[in-house]
Structures are given as structure tokens and as C-alpha cells.
Amino acid sequence: MKILVSGASVAGPALAYWLHRHGFDCTVVERATSLRDSGHAVDFRGEALAVLDRMGVLEAVRAHDTAMGDATLIDREGRGYATLPAVIFAGELEILKGDLTRILHQATQEFTEYVFGDSIAVLEQSADGVRVTFDSGRVRDFDLVVGADGLHSNTRGLVFGREDRFVRHLGIYSAIFSTDNYLGLKNTGWLYSVPDRAVNIFSARDSTEVRVALHFASGPLEYNRHDVTEHKRIVAEHFAGTGWEVPGLLRAMAAADDVYFAANAQVVMDRWHDGRVVLLGDAGYCAAPTSGRGTSQALIGAYVLAGELAAADGRHTEAFAAYEREMRGFVDEHQRVGREWAQRYFIDSLTQETIDAAVAAATQGGTDELVTLREYSLADR
């Protein structure tokens, strides 16, 4: 079977790996002209680590571990008042998203056709397959199409309808970028919060740089998602007059060339497949960054989707239904956590009770117990 996957971030390459292991032929198309390097760190725990291990990339991921220690909570006067244990925000293993994307690409490029700088324009389903017309004008036929193209999934829009039917805004926008480590942080971070605004700063790449995240509360905004200059202006306006280190961080953002700006939102759908098209990861069930589990969902979802296709011998209707049954409870709980933490995001100061509860949730398994990785038989490659 020939399967087209839209999106080359995390979910797409992870799925490409498992499709190949199960004997399927995979093409990955990516709108960007190269691998994306922007974004903050992502973390893993529980079954997500097991997926990385089964893919044979766990040690490569560990080699890029941020080795992040505890972070300091900063009050509005700029003074540290509490410590946030690393297990809450860094899980059992943390890596920059750009590093993870490169590792997954390297692990799959030998047997996966990657097409950069193109995107799906038209999908025409039939009883025998899907005819795909790309933005470049090329037309190709596939047996199945997988949308792994994120919160603003183009695939979802073409097949399931308008974005506003499925995307639930959580009232938070975030801008993430990197800059020189002029603050001198060493394997640690600072978290600063005032009403409706928050700043996270973490050292990265052996403390040679820092990754900065500027968050602000807002209802849905109208803006061009591809206009970085506009993104910087929006963030600067919302943080105008904020004290502490913020003025210097805004100057750093103005000079940064890797600013990533997006809403914290969830994708809520009754079903993730339609005919021969299925959604994976954020495209179908984004839990929002406030859940802290989006990357884990993508990895586990890729493993389950490919495994169910193999178990059903390529019978997509049966496989897609089984994939949804396996993942639905896991996703629902992650989305609940995402909504809950979005409501707490701009608390002026965290109490020790809240911190202790977060540590307990992070170390007692929690949502990881809602999914168990099945052993799917692999094709004889």
C-alpha cells in the first residue's frame, strides 16, 4: 500500500518509521522548504519513552537531553520565591523539538520519500484510493492519506471542513524564540508571572543559548499566521510596560529569526477518519501545550495507527476504528489536563500545595496508564 503523510514534524516521521516496519510504502509531504527548527523543548515519560526505544532512537534522544534542573519561580518584584522541580516541566527526558525532528528524519530518510516545499491542494477519494493534487500541480495516487500537519491542519480542512468547527481556543497565545544566554543560566530556568502574562526562560544547547516563551491571555485574535513581523508586534504590545527582564527579552525577540507564535488551543472531533483519510497527532486531537503531552500523543498515536493498519492487513476502515478506540481515552484525559492548566496559567504565585500536587501528578503515572502499547507483528523486511 502507498500511504501519503502530510507533515514532517514529529507525528509524520514517526508514522513513516512504523509504516515501513509494517511493510507499507510511505511518502511525507511538508509545506516548509526544510525541517523546522523552531519551538520549545518537549518532554517524554511513560509509554512515549517505550516508543522511542522500540524505534531504536532512544539513545540518540538521550544524547540531546537538555539535562534541565529545577527552575526558579519569580515574583512580580523580580525575586525568586519557590523552586519548580524539573520533573513537572521536563518529564523523564527533555529535548529541543528541532533536535527531535532531525533525529526522526535521519532515522527514516533512507526508506521514506520526503517532499519539501509542497502541500496538498485537492483530495479526491474513490473506492480504490485517493487522487492527490499538490500545490505544485503534480497529481499522484495513494491508497491512504494521513494528516499529521498540526493544529491548523490543511488535510483536516480539505476533508472535514472549516477549522472553527473543531479548534477550541484556550485563551492563551505564546511566542517562542531563542537568543544568546546573556542571563547566564546554567541548566535551569526562570518562570515569571503577572496577571494575564507569563515568561518562561530556559537554558539550552549546553547553556550557550536560552529559549524564551512569552505567554499572554487573550480571546481569539485575527492575524496573518505567516507574518512574523506582525507576530512580534502583537506580542510587544501585550507586554508593553511589563517589568523584570521583559524589556530586554522583547529586544531579543525583535532581533530573533526563529520566532514561533501560536494560540494554545485544542482540536476536538467526534471522529478522526473519513473514508481513506485519517488524522494523527495535533491535527486530530491537539491537547494544547498546557497539557505537556502533545509530543507523547503524537509518538504513541503513530505507533498505534501503523500497528492497527498492519493488524487489519491494510483494511483501513477496520484499522482506523481500532486506532480511535485505542487512543480516545488517552486523548480525552490529556485534553482535560490541558484545559485545567490553561485556567491556572497566570496565577500570580504558585502555592507549595499546588507545586506538590503537580509533582505527584508527574511522578505517579497518571495519564500514561490509560494506554498500553500492544505488540504488533512486524513485516519481514
Rank of each mutant, 00 (worst) to 15 (best):
Y285V: 10
G294K: 00
A298S: 09
A322N: 00
Y285A: 10
G301Q: 08
E324P: 10
D282L: 12
D282I: 02
V259T: 11
L309D: 00
L280C: 05
D313N: 13
A310Y: 01
Q266M: 10
R325N: 14
T290Y: 09
A262H: 14
R325T: 14
H273Q: 09
G301C: 08
V304R: 06
T290C: 11
E324Y: 09
L280G: 02
S291E: 09
A287D: 12
A322P: 00
D258R: 05
D270V: 08
Q297S: 15
T290Q: 09
D257E: 13
W272A: 11
Y285H: 10
M327D: 07
I300C: 14
E318A: 15
R325Y: 05
A312M: 02
D274V: 14
M269F: 01
R271N: 12
R315H: 11
D282V: 04
V304C: 14
W272G: 09
Y323K: 03
V277K: 05
G314N: 05
R276E: 07
A311V: 01
E308P: 00
D257F: 08
Y323R: 03
V277A: 07
V259C: 12
S291A: 15
P289L: 14
V267L: 11
V267M: 09
Y285Q: 08
F320D: 00
A263G: 10
I300N: 13
A312Q: 01
L280A: 06
A310L: 00
R271M: 06
L309Y: 01
R271E: 14
T295K: 11
V267E: 04
A302K: 01
F320T: 09
R325V: 15
F261Y: 13
